[in-house]
Design a protein around this nucleic acid. Sequence first.
DNA 1: GCATGACTGGACCAATCGGTCTAGAGCCCC
DNA 2: GGGGCTCTAGACCGATTGGTCCAGTCATGC
Lengths: 182, 182
Amino acid sequence: MTDTPTKDRLIMTAARLFRQKGYHGVGVAEILALSKTPKGSLYHHFPNGKPDLAVAAADWASAGLLRIIDDAFGPATDFTDGATTLCYKLAKFFDISGGWDGCPVSSILLDGPENDLFRDKVAACIEDWTARVVQHGTRLGLTPGQAAAQAELLMLGIQGAWVMARARRSSDELRKLPARLY
Amino acid sequence: MTDTPTKDRLIMTAARLFRQKGYHGVGVAEILALSKTPKGSLYHHFPNGKPDLAVAAADWASAGLLRIIDDAFGPATDFTDGATTLCYKLAKFFDISGGWDGCPVSSILLDGPENDLFRDKVAACIEDWTARVVQHGTRLGLTPGQAAAQAELLMLGIQGAWVMARARRSSDELRKLPARLY
DNA sequence: GCATGACTGGACCAATCGGTCTAGAGCCCC
DNA sequence: GGGGCTCTAGACCGATTGGTCCAGTCATGC
């Protein structure tokens, strides 16, 4: 991480901290200290400061989640198989990030300022994920209607299970999701 | 509200604001201004200040949710009927609180300080709700095993739908939940 | 070698944060 | 009517907040 470009280092550190404590729970100073970055660099790369950085962090995290979706559904034999793998991968992701951190996007953006930019972005990210799952669904033989319904249910279930996992501090909530849904 | 006792006024105002912007997103000054309460009163009723008030607000909100659960399942003819009514009631609750605010407990406590008291309390509240739903389930003819599974699924679904409702800024996410689950 | 850009380093700022403290208002009981 | 309590009212505090600003560093082009 020490040789990571400054901008990326800021984004990754910010994403981690925001997921742990929410947008308002993290001070700029803390991000700077943890990423060993001086203040000047932050406001060079993100002229609008904290909000800019938060959006960038959410974007980066959202892209990561899209990759996880692809990894889970890529080798899947049917939709349920892919969905199950996805839940297990997310459970592992939850564990390695400390067994507490929230869903990147909802943690960063739902807790953010009362700003339309933030609120629109949450919706956009969720739409991206859903669309990707729909895509995999149709590829795996579902009709467009079935795929849409299944994708909605899965995204909803994951968000719910993620909240439960935080509350109970156990990634098993995510692992148990497929059994509950299917 | 003007004739409400000071302590209750503080709790209700705090609950509303915390649901909107999360624990760290709300300053003590804002709660005081909106509830027209001087600082001294806050630290008289809640010697530990903001954290104390947040826990009291979460408790109060949690009790309110228990009442909503009872209202929904009380006159229900079977479990699915009760669950559907509950979702509709929550959708209305979501709308009248401005179409943005989160689930009281997860908004207040999941975003709170990295404090075991806060984290344990989220879990306790969710356990309370689940237990109450289980109780209604068995009363409506489900076996204990069925009731537990159905209650878990319903709580998970509600949390998920609530996140989706915030992201899409539409209470319909909550209303559509029963159709998705059953 | 020198000029020009991107980037770093950190001093500095006003505003806000949560919290403390004390003076006194209002009420009840003796 | 006075002693003692709960509660209100708000001035005040040090710490931290996000943000600005500029001098200095460095690599790259000429």
